[in-house]
Computed example of a mutant assay.
Amino acid sequence: MQNQNKKSALLVMDLQNGIVSRFAENADVLHPFQKAIEAARQNHIPVIFIRVGFSEGYPEVSPQNKAFLAISKNGGMTISDSATQIHESIQPKPNEPVITKYRFSAFAGSNLEVILRSQQINTLVLCGISTSGVVLSTLREAGDKDFAMTVLSDACLDTDTEVHRVLIEKVFPRQADVQTVDTWISTLN
């Protein structure tokens, strides 16, 4: 078996203040993310943080985009806003990229693919908030770009538990290995 550590990256997606705050009532929800990040670092797997944010004036938001139009009308979520900063419980190290995207997929409008190809990364380990947003969109696009993938089932959150369950149990296994954080960590040793 080839050494996946040299070719894998952990994508930590949308764990930013404005999104994590939706789950703030339960501080334990971030534990699987923290555990995955620490394991990746210990095993020399690059950790890449992804966030969604917009420029002042929202030039990236189309009037036809229902998901982001409300943000542009209500304000906030600009790249300098506190809501778009990575949550303090999982702060990136100085050598870990923080990539800004402009849509649901981590690839949309970002330099993610350039970084992955430059580092010869061909396997992505996905975790993030939300399962039906960034994780689903990134998985689909990464699959079309021929990346191998693992989804960390307990390091994905969604406000709709049934949608989360269907994606994790029925949709994602068609394109990715779906594992818990602990199971993934056991494959690293």
Rank of each mutant, 00 (worst) to 15 (best):
D158C: 11
V181C: 08
A70H: 01
Q64S: 13
E96V: 07
F54N: 08
V98S: 03
I71M: 10
I19S: 03
S89G: 06
I121T: 02
T78F: 12
H87N: 14
Q85K: 13
G133L: 08
I168D: 00
L157A: 04
L139C: 14
A40N: 02
A106Q: 05
P97H: 07
F104N: 08
E38Y: 04
D81R: 03
A155I: 02
Q4L: 15
I37A: 11
G76F: 05
S82L: 11
F23L: 08
S21H: 07
T183H: 06
A106K: 04
L30S: 12
A39T: 05
N111W: 00
V12H: 07
S8Q: 05
L30C: 13
R41M: 11
D81G: 06
R165E: 13
P92M: 09
H31P: 00
N74Q: 14
I48V: 14
P46M: 13
L139E: 06
V47I: 06
T159P: 02
K66N: 15
P173T: 04
N3S: 06
V125E: 05
G76L: 08
Q4W: 08
I50V: 15
A9R: 06
T84Y: 09
K93A: 14
I168S: 03
M13T: 04
S8A: 14
Q175L: 02
A70Q: 15
E38H: 11
V181F: 06
L124H: 08
V135L: 06
N65A: 11
I99W: 03
I99N: 11
T150I: 14
V134Q: 02
A36K: 03
I90R: 12
I50W: 04
C156L: 02
I185N: 02
L124C: 10
M13Q: 09
F54P: 03
K66M: 12
Y102M: 07
K66V: 01
D160F: 06
E113T: 00
I71Y: 10
I50S: 05
K66H: 13
D146A: 15
S55M: 09
F54A: 09
P59G: 11
E60H: 12
T138S: 15
I185K: 09
K101L: 04
A9T: 00
F172E: 05
S55D: 14
D144M: 05
S21E: 15
C127A: 15
V52F: 13
I86Q: 04
D154V: 00
E169M: 01
Q85N: 11
H87A: 12
A176G: 10
N43Y: 08
Y102C: 00
K66A: 12
Q120F: 08
F104W: 13
S118K: 11
K7Y: 10
G109Y: 02
A39Y: 06
K6T: 13
Q4G: 00
G18W: 09
I71A: 09
T159E: 13
Q91F: 00
D81F: 09
T100D: 01
G53Q: 06
F104I: 01
L30Y: 10
T123I: 02
Q34W: 04
